[in-house]
Write a protein that binds this DNA or RNA. Structure first.
Lengths: 334, 334
DNA sequence: CTGTTAGCGCATTCAA
DNA sequence: TTGAATGCGCTAACAG
């Protein structure tokens, strides 16, 4: 139905080869004919078919963004949305399209994500929002399809990853609290299946030891990354260690829940208990007191993952681990 | 590089026609050969190329999701993410892929979004996050490419739309406040370029008149949809009308900002001033006091837009206007 | 500089 | 029931 290269050739009175050459900027076309071809193409509203081009060139300029549990990832948008924007924009910069995939969809169709990508001849995949114990993990790692994980530290011949240096991030947070004079610092962590949880715990412990403090197991509580998780864990923590003067939460949502619970318990933030979150979600700026937090460069993470993938695709670079720095955003809660 | 239909045919000792038939479930293939073909295909790990199929079938099973200012849409994720999930999931249900587009990207490349879609032979587009005064608007409306707008009430031969009934939503909110005995009800609205703003204002006014109250222009303030917008507008409102006992905000973010400002001004929520928001973002449940709000069915909006598009594509249905209901979520702020 | 030919992977006539 | 031939729209050798 749409205008094809043939139509342009016929109207312009040249062969399709010439049209093709004119469009692809080959210099073996006289300026005259090129201009005429381009003129005709414009009049006819010709748009070269990427489908046909993909077939003959054997490259689709298309990569998938695989999101785990896209539709049911609670609170996930605070993190995923910006990453997605970074991925999309940088992909566009390279002339690539982004197709959204979801593990749940694949599950429904009973096809592996790798089959999904193969059918579409995708050139690579970027994976995010996945847990280490996700059944899709091994598939990602073992596949020959070039892939980059976000917050998913798997390194294999065809799979690299990008993540924030969570150890450093957590150390920043704890050092900040130490500098404020706190000694009994609690840590409310996310679920242990998340890689970030392991690293943040590590950073927390390291910063304490660095300051010559002993790591008290009673000061660490695991929960989920959401507001409610933060609330519940705060109660648990204060039961086990009523003398905490500061709490480091593994997410801003948790911290917000925690502050709320502390208030209920008659503790004032930051006077009685100082609070630090993680993520720098937009609302952290507006809760009372405004939340001190560790900021990840979400957009940059998406961007970096694309850069790595493009390196693998176009320059045969080997996949690697890319750690981005994070920075403290100090506000009123500490 | 990947396994093609030829490989399968060769190994199975049949023609490519037979392989094609076997794979597409034609019944003019003996059970024997079909099983053999399928077996060989599995061993060879054959995946039919969607690219080649798209070319010959002249249909890509691909639709674009056009997001306006994807990378710079502040606070947009609260709304867009869920809609996107609905679009993606429902598209998958129909066997369609979703490619993400952004107006900013198109702008950078200086190609119209319609050219972008044509090159890729997309079958349709779903548009969201766009303002009525966006330059891309006319393109969407005039294009022959089937499209569905979300919160974008344009109806043309090839363009339908889905939106929440914002008039009803606003009426719900105001009625709720009226029922609580409030008479002086302020309305802090979003920017006037957003269609939703017009409708919500309409609903606000209608509900008041319905109750026999006069609409006082001093009670309405326009601002942006963000926290800061809510804060500033609240100050303006209370200057113009210090006697308000309730405020209806056009977004939850604004309401959160408003509550904060009210607190600063020594007003207690809901005791001195009751507050209703709009959107039902996840954090509304956790601010103090928990926010009463109007909930949009975001996921369903995405889903509905796909259903409409599929109707247009597959059953030649005419584009239409689809209004979804919203419902009150009553919490502590009223 | 321009046109002819071949083929990318697949579905679909039409014969056998 | 199976296979040979044709073409989807385009690019890339090659020849003129």
């Amino acid at each position: 139905m749409p205008v094809t290269i043939k139509d342009v050739a016929r109207v312009a009175g040249v062969s399709i080869t010439t049209v093709s050459h004119a469009f692809n900027g080959h210099d073996d076309v006289s300026a005259d004919t090129r201009d005429r071809v381009l003129q005709v193409a414009k009049e006819l509203n010709y748009r070269p078919s990427h489908v046909a081009r993909s077939l003959v060139l054997q490259q689709t300029h298309n990569v998938g963004l695989l999101v785990s549990d896209f539709n049911t990832n609670p609170g996930g948008h605070h993190f995923l949305f910006d990453v997605m924007a970074g991925v999309h924009d940088q992909l566009a910069e390279f002339g690539y399209d982004m197709t959204l995939l979801s593990t749940t969809t694949a599950m429904q169709r009973l096809v592996s994500y790798i089959d999904f990508c193969t059918e579409r001849r995708m050139e690579g995949v970027i994976v995010m929002g996945m847990r280490m114990n996700d059944p899709y993990m091994r598939e990602v790692a073992d596949a020959k399809l070039p892939s980059v994980g976000i917050d998913l530290p798997i390194l294999s011949p065809h799979c690299g990853y990008v993540m924030t240096d969570n150890i450093q991030g957590a150390m920043h947070a704890v050092r900040h609290l130490l500098a404020k004079g706190h000694q009994r610092i609690g840590f409310i962590n996310g679920h242990a299946e998340a890689v970030v949880s392991v690293d943040r715990l590590h950073g927390y412990q390291t910063a304490l030891r660095e300051a010559g403090l002993k790591v008290d197991p009673d000061l660490v509580v695991h929960s989920n990354f959401l507001v409610q998780g933060g609330e519940e864990a705060t109660t648990v923590l204060l039961t086990k260690a009523p003398d905490v003067t500061a709490i480091f939460y593994a997410s801003d949502l948790m911290a917000i829940g925690g502050m709320r619970r502390l208030l209920r318990m008659g503790k004032r933030v930051p006077h009685d208990v100082a609070v630090v979150g993680y993520d720098n979600i937009d609302l952290g700026e507006w809760v009372v007191p405004a939340l001190t937090t560790v900021a990840q460069r979400r957009y940059d993470m998406g961007k970096a993952s694309v850069d790595m993938l493009m390196g693998m695709l176009r320059r045969q670079e080997r996949p690697r681990a890319c750690l981005l720095t994070s920075e403290m955003v100090v506000r009123q809660s500490t």
